[in-house]
Design a protein around this nucleic acid. Structure first.
Lengths: 210, 210
DNA sequence: CGAGCAAACGAACGATCGTACTATTTTAAT
DNA sequence: ATTAAAATAGTACGATCGTTCGTTTGCTCG
């Protein structure tokens, strides 16, 4: 009569609603901001009571932190993990850029990249939320940087350049498309970002012998 | 007994306080957002009554619009006008970038570039405020683009490239520094932006005969 | 100087915010 | 089927939001 070690039973009720809440919350927050996100409106959007929803988090800040964590996981599975399927080196660097652009272009979040919005909102507001958002950005930049470094190590990228500078530039070129699309409704920005990233990487690539 | 055509008398009382209000408001808004900016806190920060302050604008949206306009004028005098002193062509393109970086680095607004924050905040929120913010961004991008085009016309820049693509890339490289500084407290970003812009422009510059 | 108007104030409005409590319902394990 | 626990609902609180209104202050100009 052993209970299975790995339970394939559905998650308990609480977990399930918590997940449903966060799915909606993250979507709202990407468009209205984590501060503009309101417990009342979130609850009525989910057709449940404010207090019932509130009990899952205990405070608005905890709700915001949970949103950041949920968004982070989506980012991981939509951008990072797909890119990690590309072979190390310059190919992965390209994949990281392309996956980011595609993730933003597909509007995985209604308001565009969740972290772009959250970064702008909290960049002058100390607290745990800001710290988590900043940490996620740092991880992303570190990912770009280490991909660039690896590309140098395997001789695909100019050994003279600074990998963190490459990370800075690629991140800049790629994330700017989000703003252009969201604010200026310029959908051509996605391809601008693509060719900008391509040109930058190509210009730093070590010429291959044919 | 003619009244002087150009009055050097101080502006009437109402104008003066309105200006004082906006000076503080724009500063607060750059850090807390135009929506996070509250009439109550703004009033108490200025040591005046909510209603007295409110009367100057009539609605919060009008206050926000006035903030955008005030910030726009500051942006013009801190970035655009100084850059226009540089001669047309590639020099002006460089000047636009440098003035933007310097403006953001000097923290003319407490929360970094006002328009970067406002753009992120309103990019998913229709309304007049968003339209004015977007228009300001478009003007800025158009300025970069026309500088690049002029540089082509005078033979300083590769005639093959697309000026609007150059504008996109320069804007991206330069504005990313604001986010890195504000969120990640990475002050090295300013020089990253400088060298990124320089390298991009140099790579597109037509080699000069010596 | 004093009339008239613009500017600032104080108090109050209804709405909504985040949060705290208690009560009720639903779930999960015996 | 019973029961303890977990999840949700209901209600209310104090604070603060944007806004309105009537009054009072103080500037400005004939």
């Amino acid at each position: 009569m052993m209970t299975p070690v790995i339970a394939e039973t559905a998650a308990p009720k609480g977990e399930r609603t918590r997940r449903a809440i966060l799915e909606t919350a993250v979507d709202m927050a990407s468009a209205e901001g984590l501060e503009g996100l309101t417990i009342g409106r979130l609850a009525s959007g989910l057709e449940m009571s404010k207090s019932g929803l509130f009990a899952h988090f205990g405070s608005k800040e905890e709700l915001q932190l949970a949103c950041v964590e949920a968004a982070r996981e989506i980012f991981l599975s939509e951008v990072i993990r797909p890119a990690l399927r590309a072979p190390r080196g310059i190919a992965r660097l390209r994949a990281l850029c392309e996956q980011w652009i595609s993730y933003a272009e597909r509007k995985v979040f209604r308001g565009g990249c969740f972290f772009d919005a959250a970064a702008a909102e909290f960049d002058s507001r100390p607290g745990e939320v800001r710290d988590r958002v900043a940490a996620t950005w740092r991880d992303w930049l570190a990912m770009l940087e280490s991909a660039a470094r690896k590309a140098q190590e395997v001789g695909e990228l100019d050994p003279e350049i600074d990998p963190s500078q490459v990370a800075y530039e690629l991140n800049a070129l790629v994330t700017a498309a989000n703003r252009s699309s969201q604010l200026l409704e310029d959908e051509a920005a996605w391809n601008r970002a693509r060719s900008a990233a391509r040109r930058l990487i190509d210009s730093l690539a070590v010429a291959r012998q044919s």
